[in-house]
């Protein structure tokens, strides 16, 4: 009684997946409103925006708005900071999250819950809140860290006036806050792996290490590449909250904490020039787009299955 399968109409698929599509709707709307609609504003990057002339009548200025960023000597330093931090965050988060996810998989249920919650809570905190925690640790006069250093007989630091320690502080803060979430994503990925693989492996007497490297990781590779490609696009868009609030916007830390987002915010807070802000936003988006396409291209060359598009 096998029927010949006919090609179905568009409507059939729409109806069949209507519930799933409905679930997609809020997300799609969000992207539409916050990513696609504002895109028309890109025009302003090439205009000297004046309130009295408005969107349409402000004069065109070519690439003048991009100038301020590229003429400054800071451009290279800040671009370097942005990319280096972005890459470090991406790689370390992925590695740590994978490690934790695999470890969690080995855990009993009760412990699992405690760990999950403890790791996930920081993800829900805003950077402003975290900045006060950081201040309590790093304050020159009353900070815990200096008190500890003092009792240990070590020399104290004026953290907010030094640039050297900040890469470590920022990376720790980022990992503390974000690893929990990525861990959950990978853990969910591991839960999706068919248990039969592990049962078969157990019968063959495989060690836990081998199970992790020979079964879990290869089966997760699809998920890992998708997440990596997606986050590569964000390398060039730094984490403003982290880099602005955690160093308390203290001048002497800029050489190691400043990224494009904080520099632009600070530079433009002075004159509120919409054209210049838009120009840098456009620059960031373009580089982000190039990075994503390039990463996807490389992945497709290596393994077509894992690429995004």
């Amino acid at each position: 009684m096998i029927k010949q399968r006919k090609p179905r109409s568009e409507w059939y698929y729409l109806k069949k997946n209507s519930e799933l599509l409905l679930l997609l709707l809020p997300g799609a709307l969000l992207v539409l409103v916050f990513a696609y609609l504002p895109m028309f504003g890109v025009v302003l990057a090439f205009k000297d925006f004046r309130y009295d002339m408005g969107f349409w009548h402000s004069p065109w200025v070519g690439l003048d708005n991009f100038k301020f960023f590229f003429v400054s000597d800071n451009a290279t330093l800040i671009t370097r900071n942005t990319v280096a931090y972005g890459l470090t965050y991406m790689i370390l988060t992925t590695l740590l999250a994978l490690l934790f996810a695999i470890l969690m998989n080995e855990m009993g249920k009760r412990w699992l819950r405690i760990h999950q919650t403890a790791m996930f809570i920081p993800y829900c905190l805003s950077w402003v809140v975290v900045s006060y925690l950081a201040l309590a640790l790093l304050d020159t006069q009353n900070g815990y860290l200096n008190k500890v250093l003092e009792t240990l007989g070590l020399s104290t630091h004026m953290w907010y006036l030094e640039s050297a320690p900040w890469p470590y502080i920022l990376i720790s803060a980022y990992l503390w806050k974000n690893v929990g979430f990525s861990t959950l994503v990978y853990f969910a990925g591991i839960m999706g792996i068919n248990q039969e693989y592990y049962e078969a492996a157990k019968i063959d007497g495989t060690s836990r290490w081998q199970m992790a490297t020979k079964i879990t990781l290869p089966l997760l590779s699809n998920l890992i590449t998708v997440l990596l490609i997606l986050s590569i696009g964000h390398i060039f868009v730094g984490d403003f909250g982290l880099h602005y609030f955690i160093p308390n916007d203290a001048g002497m830390t800029y050489s190691t904490t400043d990224i494009i987002d904080t520099y632009v915010y600070r530079a433009l807070r002075v004159n509120g020039d919409i054209g210049m802000s838009t120009a840098i936003g456009l620059y960031q988006s373009l580089v982000g787009l190039v990075l994503v396409v390039a990463a996807n291209y490389v992945v497709r060359k290596i393994n077509d299955e894992n690429s995004l598009f």
Binding site: N74, G251, Y254, R266
Partner: peptide, 28 residues
């Protein structure tokens, strides 16, 4: 009239914020 040196003033302001306060208050 700041308009002719707008590009420079934006960057100068950013630099001043970086160094000015720390120097003026003797912290460095």
């Amino acid at each position: 009239n700041t308009e002719p040196y707008k590009t420079e003033s934006v960057n100068i302001a950013a630099v001043s914020e970086q160094y000015g306060k720390a120097l003026n208050s003797g912290a460095v």
